[in-house]
Design a protein around this nucleic acid. Structure first.
Length: 939
RNA sequence: GGGCGCAUAACUCAGCGGUAGAGUACCACCUUCACACGGUGGGAGUCGUAGGUUCAAAUCCUGCUGCGCCCACCA
């Protein structure tokens, strides 16, 4: 047997093992500074030869609290874009960082404190508690960045930022002060969303509304003059003590006689005081209000509780009603509720109120009712509307430019459908409550004089200066204790991370960013606010594109959450996981646990599922499929490395004249795929990009090119054709690995480093040029030749399978068809024989009757193929098979003909469509003729 | 109450006006010298439903049904 001259020992193991490769390469890349961007080339004028176009992505900062979840694994989209642009030669910079995540982090540290020391943050005091948070941050904050490394993300770690670091805190202060000076910041006392568990105000966005089953109770309020009663309907009887009126519709005839009268408030204590401390009588007025009251709902009478309901708050203002607060900040009732209820939690108080009302015969009814109850996004506790003084950003003036920018396409949102949502929210934007009654966060830079006068300044000294101008020396200042909403600092992230407010080189070179890529769930929280702040403080949009990816869900489409127990840690997919670490559902399906899949497999899986619009339903089976693909690529390379003559190959240009049609075909296909991949990436169609590379490598390169090139590669000696084939093989691998690199950085680097390239332009595939597709290699003739080979080969294989020939049994075949097609196909006679287990190939211009005697026959577009079976042929089965072929072809012909013969079609369809259909009909007709001929000969 | 999205092969999804596709799963055969994480061949869908527009509809329009999401203060 001819042993190929491959004298290299096996250069690669038989199966790809990601774990060792991945850690090795990441460390190497990072150590060599391949992730680090230099601003200088982007500061040059664009016409300068050394100028490099900046391409910047600022990472959506994960929370310091967090460990990695699947949502973070979607950063792979950003890494693909960054690696692609880096290879295109752009000055690519991907900035990492983490967010202090006010409420979330504080909650975690408080929970730990409670668990370990049974203390609250108040036991420690603010200063000591914050020390604990920092300590916690230092201990566990690095974990997530390590996890990001494990996924291969090419982040510029030299630029890592944290929202609470001094430079970024300075930016926060600067923005706060400027907004204040511009009149875009104010304090106001109004109803706010109060989380009774986190003990802080929340913005509207941080309140989730969930439909819940509840009751609607009807309560009688006796008229003060004893002339009867009114019955109100309410879902919140416990706030009854906060009522300062009942309202009816002005046109409701049922209550016309009651206008201007007063009702006695049941259960009310002798003394209730309003928010100003004034005493409120037990009798409250009946007011008429067409806005609040819907005559058709309930009894048509509404109790008005300005202190605990947003609608009633507005109603109270319209009627100058006093405001009585009955709920404390901790969710218990206060003295206004009377001795019987004071100190009780809201839910307990509700039961008690109902009991008391029932006792007094005032409870008139109870109905089932669904209502939307606000709950804290972080802790799910019930949110109470409470009166409180908070800081607000005046958002309308900021929203204007953010709307215009998207309208004029300065920033484009992808998928486009989200633009409408963005516009709608921006247009109806409410002022933003930014103060939080927490400790962990940026403390508000505002100081109060003893009389309450507020001074906003960059630091205490500046505040003091202002204060002393007004109050003279020695005035005592007290700093506002509140901190800012986490999203306030996040809104500045695209420029605070680059050094703003200083004028830095990074700011000049790298702002604005190219694309902001994130989940659509934070479109309002974050994207919208970055748009507002970015435009306001830098005069430019913070990014040109917003690419919103779908949510990662489990394979059943459910949101991943701790309570559902279906959270998947990406590293469990990468490294494998024992069964006990898996979500419950997965435990049943994978009793042995998960096998390691490698970061590349997970990356390409997510990239190919990140198609726009839909949710990403991740299943481990899918990842397995891509792992097989990576292994396939690995083995294709392994084959090449074992078979190619040692030493660098020639460049494909040098050997072009000696190439076979197969070489020219695969190069033609390669350049086309490269071009398509670039288009797909530019359109954020990562699924199309991966699909193109996948099918090229597997279906064309591995299944056909490698097989067709084997005879040439096995040849003894050094023929020009063999050299051309080797050059092509290595070139295609080189180019495909580059194409694949942004998706699968590890395996591509590992293989690429071992390729005997004609020329190695870069020490790492990371920085090798990304293939764009060179049309010079387009070769239609070669594509058609190879098409003939494939067609003939498939025909033989199908024939063999149809007559159930043992795969190893070699047979002679007879082929008829045009001379050209036969020449094209037979040029690869060796490969053909091997792939079809063919003993010999006999050529004919046409198959005469005796040449198909005792043969199984297949008719294709270009060929007629006969397989002599001497006595083995099952005539009946063969007849059935041929008849089936004919029926199938006729069915197709019929459907096309039906269309073609329709007069309207001829009159109106485009010419090329008509021609194509007619050609197809003719082709099928010819095929059917030959099939029928063959069939009739069988008798 | 508004707005958006989705219903295509057993599963997960692509296609979005001109002959129904992929991956996985499935069936049969094959340990052939890159790869059994493999090869070859195969079966599998009246493209949710009812209408409309068009020469032509999975693709455009309308109604309906079923899911999902977002926004909104109905007691």
């Amino acid at each position: 047997m001819k042993r190929a001259m491959s004298n290299t020992p096996e250069p690669l193991p038989k199966a790809y093992d990601p774990s060792e490769v991945e850690t090795r390469w990441y460390a190497h890349w990072e150590k060599n500074g391949y992730f680090t961007a230099n601003p200088e080339p982007s500061l040059l004028p664009p016409e300068h030869p050394d100028y490099r176009r900046p391409y910047v992505i600022v990472i959506p900062p994960p929370n310091v609290t967090g460990s990695l979840h699947m949502g973070h694994a979607m950063y792979v989209i950003e890494d693909v874009l960054i690696r692609w642009h880096r290879m295109l030669g752009d000055n690519a910079m991907w900035l990492p960082g983490v967010d202090h995540a006010g409420i979330a982090t504080q909650m975690i540290v408080e929970r730990e404190l409670k668990k370990n020391e049974n203390k609250t943050r108040h036991d420690l005091g603010r200063e000591q508690f914050l020390e604990r948070v920092w300590k916690w941050k230092h201990e566990s904050g690095g974990r997530i960045t390590q996890q990001l490394r494990a996924l291969g993300f090419s982040l510029d770690w030299t630029r890592e930022r944290f929202t609470m670091e001094p430079a970024l805190s300075k930016a926060v202060t600067e923005v706060f002060v400027r907004l204040w000076e511009e009149g875009l910041l104010y304090q106001s006392s109004r109803l706010i969303n109060w989380c009774t568990s986190c003990h802080t105000a929340l913005s509207d966005l941080e309140v989730d509304h969930e439909e819940e089953k509840g009751k609607l109770w009807e309560i009688a309020y006796p008229l003060e003059d004893g002339s009867g009663e009114v019955v109100v309907a309410t879902t919140r009887p416990e706030t009854l003590l906060g009522d300062t009126a009942v309202a009816v519709h002005p046109k409701d005839p049922r209550y016309a006689s009651m206008h201007g009268k007063r009702v006695k408030l049941p259960l009310a204590p002798e003394t209730r005081t309003d928010s100003e401390g004034r005493k409120i009588p037990r009798a409250i007025p009946v007011v008429t209000d067409a806005i609040l009251v819907d005559m058709a709902f309930g009894s048509g009478v509404v109790k008005v509780t300005p202190g605990h309901d947003f609608n009633d708050f507005e109603t109270g203002k319209r009627h100058a009603l006093p405001l009585v607060n009955v709920v404390n900040l901790d969710g218990t009732l206060n003295e206004n509720a009377g001795a019987a209820l004071q100190g009780k939690k809201v839910d307990a108080a509700r039961k008690e109120v109902l009991r008391l009302l029932h006792e007094q015969g005032l409870l008139r009814g109870e109905k089932d009712h669904t209502l939307a109850r606000g709950r804290c996004q972080r802790c799910s506790a019930v949110v109470e509307p409470l009166l409180s003084t908070q800081w607000y950003v005046r958002t309308k003036p900021l929203a204007g430019p953010a709307i215009t920018a998207v309208e004029y396409g300065k920033t484009k949102i992808i998928p486009e459908g989200w633009t409408k949502t963005y516009m709608h929210w921006m247009t109806n934007i409410q002022d933003w409550c930014i103060s939080r009654q927490l400790w962990w966060g940026h403390q508000i830079p505002a100081w109060y004089a003893p009389d309450g006068t507020v001074f906003v300044a960059r630091d205490e000294a500046a505040a003091r200066e202002q204060a002393e101008k007004k109050f003279g020396e020695g005035v005592v200042l007290r700093r506002d204790e509140d901190v800012l909403d986490t999203w306030f600092s996040s809104a500045l992230w695209p420029f605070s991370t680059l050094g703003w407010p200083e004028r830095t080189k990074d700011m000049d070179a790298f702002y604005p960013g190219a694309v902001l890529e994130t989940g659509f769930d934070i479109l309002f929280f974050w994207v919208a606010r970055m748009m507002m702040m970015g435009l306001h403080f830098t005069g430019e949009v913070p990014f040109r594109h917003v690419f919103l990816h779908a949510m990662v869900r489990d394979e059943k489409g459910q949101k991943m959450s701790k309570t559902r127990g279906n959270v998947i840690d990406p590293l469990d997919v990468v490294n494998g996981a024992p069964v006990e670490r898996l979500p419950k559902e997965q435990q049943k399906q994978h009793p042995e646990g998960w096998r390691p899949q490698g970061a590349d497999s997970l990356r390409i899986t997510l990239a190919s599922m990140a198609a726009q619009g839909r949710d990403v339903k991740l299943s481990i089976d899918r990842v397995e499929g891509y792992k097989a693909f990576i292994n396939k690529v690995w083995n294709a390379a392994r084959f090449a490395l074992m078979r190619v003559t040692p030493g660098p190959v020639k460049s494909i240009d040098e050997v072009r004249a000696d190439m076979s049609p197969a070489d020219r075909w695969i190069l033609s296909r390669l350049q086309q795929v490269a071009a398509e991949v670039n288009v797909a990436l530019a359109e954020y169609r990562l699924d199309e990009a991966t699909g193109g590379i996948y099918h090229f490598l597997w279906d064309e390169f591995c299944d056909w090119y490698i097989e067709m090139s084997k005879p040439a590669l096995m040849e003894e000696g050094q023929s020009p054709a063999k050299r051309a084939c080797e050059a092509t093989l290595v070139h295609v691998l080189d180019t495909s690995l580059r194409l694949l690199h942004p998706f699968c950085p590890f395996v591509t680097e590992e293989i690429w480093q071992k390729l005997p390239l004609a020329r190695r332009e870069s020490p790492t595939v990371m920085k090798a040029a990304y293939p764009r597709g060179e049309t010079a290699w387009h070769d239609e003739q070669a594509e058609s030749s190879v098409g003939a080979v494939m067609e003939l080969c498939s025909a033989v294989r199908r024939l063999r399978a149809d007559v159930a020939l043992p795969p190893a049994k070699k047979v002679p075949v007879r082929v008829a068809g045009s001379a050209g097609a036969r020449t094209d196909a037979l040029r690869f006679e060796d490969a053909l024989k091997r792939l079809g287990a063919i003993e010999s190939i006999e050529q004919h211009d046409a198959l005469s009757p005796e040449k198909t005697k005792q043969c199984a026959v297949m008719v294709t577009t270009r060929f007629q193929v006969a397989l002599p079976l001497e006595g083995l042929l099952d005539v009946a089965a063969e007849k059935t098979r041929l008849q089936k072929e004919i029926d199938k072809a006729l069915k197709e012909k019929g459907s096309i003909e039906g269309r073609v013969n329709h007069e309207g079609f001829r009159a109106r369809a485009p010419k090329d469509v008509i021609e194509k259909d007619e050609a197809r009909v003719k082709e099928i007709a010819e095929r059917v003729e030959r099939l029928k001929e063959t069939l009739s000969r069988l008798g």
